[in-house]
Amino acid sequence: MIRRIIKQTTPIMFGYIPMGMTFGVLFQGLGYPWYFSTLMGLFIFAGAAQFMAIGLLSAGAGLTEVFISTFMLNFRHVFYGLSILEKYGKWGLRKFYLVFGLTDETYSLVTTIKVPAEVNEQNYYFFITLINQGYWVIGCTLGVLLGGLVEFNTEGMDFALTALFIVLVIEQWKNIRDILPFVIATLSSIFVLIFFPSQMLVGSIMLSISILITLRAIKNKSYG
Protein backbone atom coordinates (compact mmCIF):
# COMPACT_ATOMS: atom_id res chain seq x y z
CA MET A 1 0.00 0.00 0.00
CA ILE A 2 2.74 2.44 0.98
CA ARG A 3 4.64 1.81 -2.24
CA ARG A 4 1.53 2.56 -4.25
CA ILE A 5 0.91 5.73 -2.26
CA ILE A 6 4.49 6.91 -2.74
CA LYS A 7 4.05 6.44 -6.47
CA GLN A 8 0.78 8.35 -6.48
CA THR A 9 2.17 11.22 -4.41
CA THR A 10 5.48 11.62 -6.25
CA PRO A 11 4.17 14.47 -8.45
CA ILE A 12 3.17 16.23 -5.23
CA MET A 13 6.70 15.75 -3.88
CA PHE A 14 7.99 17.48 -7.01
CA GLY A 15 5.76 20.41 -6.22
CA TYR A 16 5.95 20.56 -2.42
CA ILE A 17 9.68 20.22 -1.87
CA PRO A 18 10.80 23.10 -4.14
CA MET A 19 7.83 25.21 -3.04
CA GLY A 20 8.52 24.49 0.64
CA MET A 21 12.18 25.33 0.06
CA THR A 22 11.22 28.67 -1.46
CA PHE A 23 9.15 29.34 1.63
CA GLY A 24 12.10 28.37 3.86
CA VAL A 25 14.48 30.72 2.04
CA LEU A 26 12.02 33.61 2.41
CA PHE A 27 11.42 32.74 6.06
CA GLN A 28 15.15 32.77 6.75
CA GLY A 29 15.19 36.39 5.61
CA LEU A 30 12.94 37.31 8.57
CA GLY A 31 15.65 36.43 11.09
CA TYR A 32 13.78 33.92 13.28
CA PRO A 33 15.35 30.61 14.41
CA TRP A 34 15.20 28.02 11.62
CA TYR A 35 12.95 25.50 13.37
CA PHE A 36 10.00 27.85 13.24
CA SER A 37 9.87 27.20 9.50
CA THR A 38 9.49 23.48 10.25
CA LEU A 39 6.89 24.31 12.89
CA MET A 40 4.84 26.34 10.42
CA GLY A 41 4.91 23.48 7.92
CA LEU A 42 3.77 21.11 10.67
CA PHE A 43 0.96 23.22 12.09
CA ILE A 44 -0.28 25.60 9.42
CA PHE A 45 0.37 23.28 6.45
CA ALA A 46 -1.04 25.60 3.79
CA GLY A 47 1.18 26.83 0.98
CA ALA A 48 -0.53 30.07 0.01
CA ALA A 49 -1.16 31.04 3.65
CA GLN A 50 2.47 30.49 4.62
CA PHE A 51 3.68 32.66 1.76
CA MET A 52 1.22 35.31 2.86
CA ALA A 53 2.61 34.91 6.40
CA ILE A 54 6.04 36.15 5.24
CA GLY A 55 4.51 39.48 4.26
CA LEU A 56 2.30 39.70 7.36
CA LEU A 57 5.18 38.84 9.71
CA SER A 58 7.54 41.39 8.22
CA ALA A 59 4.79 44.01 8.45
CA GLY A 60 4.03 42.98 12.04
CA ALA A 61 0.34 42.52 11.21
CA GLY A 62 -2.22 42.37 14.01
CA LEU A 63 -3.54 38.93 14.96
CA THR A 64 -7.13 39.75 14.03
CA GLU A 65 -5.96 40.72 10.58
CA VAL A 66 -3.95 37.49 10.38
CA PHE A 67 -7.02 35.45 11.29
CA ILE A 68 -9.35 37.16 8.83
CA SER A 69 -6.95 37.15 5.89
CA THR A 70 -6.00 33.49 6.44
CA PHE A 71 -9.64 32.48 6.75
CA MET A 72 -10.53 34.32 3.54
CA LEU A 73 -7.55 32.96 1.65
CA ASN A 74 -8.36 29.37 2.61
CA PHE A 75 -12.14 29.68 2.39
CA ARG A 76 -12.19 27.43 -0.72
CA HIS A 77 -11.42 24.49 1.59
CA VAL A 78 -14.99 24.70 2.91
CA PHE A 79 -16.16 23.42 -0.48
CA TYR A 80 -13.59 20.66 -0.53
CA GLY A 81 -14.90 19.30 2.75
CA LEU A 82 -18.49 19.69 1.58
CA SER A 83 -17.91 17.28 -1.30
CA ILE A 84 -16.15 14.55 0.70
CA LEU A 85 -18.36 14.34 3.80
CA GLU A 86 -19.10 10.68 3.12
CA LYS A 87 -15.71 9.77 1.70
CA TYR A 88 -13.78 10.70 4.84
CA GLY A 89 -15.85 8.34 6.97
CA LYS A 90 -16.40 8.24 10.70
CA TRP A 91 -14.86 10.56 13.30
CA GLY A 92 -11.71 9.55 15.06
CA LEU A 93 -8.12 10.67 15.36
CA ARG A 94 -7.38 9.61 11.79
CA LYS A 95 -10.25 11.65 10.38
CA PHE A 96 -9.22 14.61 12.50
CA TYR A 97 -5.82 14.51 10.82
CA LEU A 98 -7.37 13.99 7.35
CA VAL A 99 -9.43 17.14 7.79
CA PHE A 100 -6.46 19.06 9.20
CA GLY A 101 -4.30 18.13 6.20
CA LEU A 102 -6.84 18.77 3.42
CA THR A 103 -4.74 20.73 0.91
CA ASP A 104 -5.60 21.37 -2.76
CA GLU A 105 -3.30 18.56 -3.85
CA THR A 106 -4.48 16.00 -1.28
CA TYR A 107 -8.10 16.79 -2.14
CA SER A 108 -7.38 16.34 -5.84
CA LEU A 109 -5.75 12.99 -5.27
CA VAL A 110 -8.30 11.47 -2.87
CA THR A 111 -11.25 12.47 -5.06
CA THR A 112 -9.74 10.98 -8.21
CA ILE A 113 -7.83 7.81 -7.33
CA LYS A 114 -9.42 4.47 -6.61
CA VAL A 115 -8.51 2.79 -3.34
CA PRO A 116 -7.65 -0.91 -3.76
CA ALA A 117 -10.58 -3.05 -2.61
CA GLU A 118 -8.68 -4.86 0.16
CA VAL A 119 -7.48 -1.64 1.80
CA ASN A 120 -9.25 0.46 4.44
CA GLU A 121 -10.13 3.72 2.67
CA GLN A 122 -9.58 6.00 5.63
CA ASN A 123 -6.18 4.43 6.23
CA TYR A 124 -5.24 4.94 2.62
CA TYR A 125 -6.22 8.62 2.67
CA PHE A 126 -4.42 9.01 5.99
CA PHE A 127 -1.11 7.91 4.54
CA ILE A 128 -1.56 10.06 1.43
CA THR A 129 -2.09 13.09 3.67
CA LEU A 130 0.79 12.17 5.97
CA ILE A 131 3.28 11.60 3.16
CA ASN A 132 2.25 14.83 1.44
CA GLN A 133 2.77 16.75 4.66
CA GLY A 134 6.14 15.02 5.00
CA TYR A 135 7.25 16.44 1.64
CA TRP A 136 6.08 19.90 2.64
CA VAL A 137 7.80 19.88 6.05
CA ILE A 138 11.04 18.59 4.49
CA GLY A 139 10.87 21.41 1.93
CA CYS A 140 10.24 24.10 4.57
CA THR A 141 13.15 22.76 6.66
CA LEU A 142 15.66 22.32 3.82
CA GLY A 143 14.94 25.79 2.49
CA VAL A 144 15.62 27.54 5.77
CA LEU A 145 18.74 25.49 6.52
CA LEU A 146 20.33 25.64 3.10
CA GLY A 147 19.15 29.16 2.38
CA GLY A 148 20.89 30.48 -0.66
CA LEU A 149 23.98 28.32 0.02
CA VAL A 150 23.26 25.52 -2.39
CA GLU A 151 22.60 26.24 -6.02
CA PHE A 152 20.14 23.57 -7.00
CA ASN A 153 18.28 24.40 -10.13
CA THR A 154 14.69 23.37 -9.57
CA GLU A 155 13.29 26.00 -11.93
CA GLY A 156 10.23 24.63 -13.65
CA MET A 157 9.87 21.64 -11.32
CA ASP A 158 6.65 23.04 -9.93
CA PHE A 159 5.08 22.36 -13.32
CA ALA A 160 4.54 18.90 -11.78
CA LEU A 161 1.53 20.28 -9.90
CA THR A 162 0.07 21.78 -13.09
CA ALA A 163 0.63 18.45 -14.85
CA LEU A 164 -0.93 16.63 -11.90
CA PHE A 165 -4.10 18.73 -12.07
CA ILE A 166 -4.28 18.23 -15.85
CA VAL A 167 -3.95 14.45 -15.51
CA LEU A 168 -6.56 14.43 -12.74
CA VAL A 169 -9.00 16.35 -14.96
CA ILE A 170 -8.59 13.62 -17.60
CA GLU A 171 -9.06 10.93 -14.93
CA GLN A 172 -12.15 12.72 -13.61
CA TRP A 173 -13.53 12.73 -17.14
CA LYS A 174 -12.94 8.99 -17.42
CA ASN A 175 -14.77 8.45 -14.11
CA ILE A 176 -17.78 10.64 -14.73
CA ARG A 177 -18.21 10.80 -18.57
CA ASP A 178 -20.39 13.87 -18.28
CA ILE A 179 -19.34 17.18 -19.76
CA LEU A 180 -21.59 19.29 -17.49
CA PRO A 181 -19.16 19.91 -14.56
CA PHE A 182 -16.31 20.82 -16.92
CA VAL A 183 -18.47 23.31 -18.81
CA ILE A 184 -19.81 24.88 -15.61
CA ALA A 185 -16.28 25.17 -14.19
CA THR A 186 -14.80 26.73 -17.33
CA LEU A 187 -17.59 29.26 -17.78
CA SER A 188 -17.50 30.19 -14.08
CA SER A 189 -13.72 30.63 -14.18
CA ILE A 190 -13.88 32.88 -17.24
CA PHE A 191 -16.63 34.96 -15.67
CA VAL A 192 -14.78 35.37 -12.36
CA LEU A 193 -11.44 36.05 -14.12
CA ILE A 194 -13.06 38.91 -16.00
CA PHE A 195 -15.04 40.46 -13.15
CA PHE A 196 -13.26 39.42 -9.91
CA PRO A 197 -9.73 38.40 -10.97
CA SER A 198 -8.29 38.73 -7.45
CA GLN A 199 -10.74 36.11 -6.11
CA MET A 200 -10.42 33.68 -8.98
CA LEU A 201 -10.12 30.43 -7.02
CA VAL A 202 -12.78 30.80 -4.34
CA GLY A 203 -15.02 32.86 -6.63
CA SER A 204 -15.08 30.24 -9.39
CA ILE A 205 -15.69 27.43 -6.92
CA MET A 206 -18.60 29.25 -5.26
CA LEU A 207 -20.13 30.26 -8.58
CA SER A 208 -19.88 26.80 -10.12
CA ILE A 209 -21.38 25.07 -7.07
CA SER A 210 -24.22 27.63 -7.05
CA ILE A 211 -24.89 26.90 -10.74
CA LEU A 212 -24.79 23.18 -10.03
CA ILE A 213 -27.32 23.44 -7.22
CA THR A 214 -29.57 25.75 -9.26
CA LEU A 215 -29.58 23.34 -12.21
CA ARG A 216 -30.52 20.51 -9.89
CA ALA A 217 -33.31 22.54 -8.32
CA ILE A 218 -34.73 23.47 -11.75
CA LYS A 219 -34.57 19.87 -12.87
CA ASN A 220 -36.34 18.62 -9.73
CA LYS A 221 -39.05 21.23 -10.16
CA SER A 222 -39.76 20.50 -13.81
CA TYR A 223 -39.97 16.77 -13.21
CA GLY A 224 -42.09 17.31 -10.14
Binding site: F79, Y80, L82, S83, D104, Y107, S108, T111, T112, T162, F165, I166, L168, V169, Q172, W173, N175, I176, L180, P181, F182, I184, A185, T186, S188, S189, L193, L201, S204, I205, S208, I209, L212
Partner: peptide, 12 residues
Protein backbone atom coordinates in the same frame (compact mmCIF):
# COMPACT_ATOMS: atom_id res chain seq x y z
CA UNK B 1 -19.94 16.82 -9.50
CA UNK B 2 -17.72 19.06 -7.38
CA UNK B 3 -14.36 17.25 -7.76
CA UNK B 4 -14.26 17.52 -11.58
CA UNK B 5 -15.30 21.16 -11.32
CA UNK B 6 -12.64 21.98 -8.73
CA UNK B 7 -9.96 20.11 -10.69
CA UNK B 8 -10.82 22.08 -13.85
CA UNK B 9 -10.75 25.34 -11.90
CA UNK B 10 -7.35 24.45 -10.39
CA UNK B 11 -5.91 23.86 -13.87
CA UNK B 12 -7.21 27.22 -15.08
Amino acid sequence: YTPPMIMSILVL
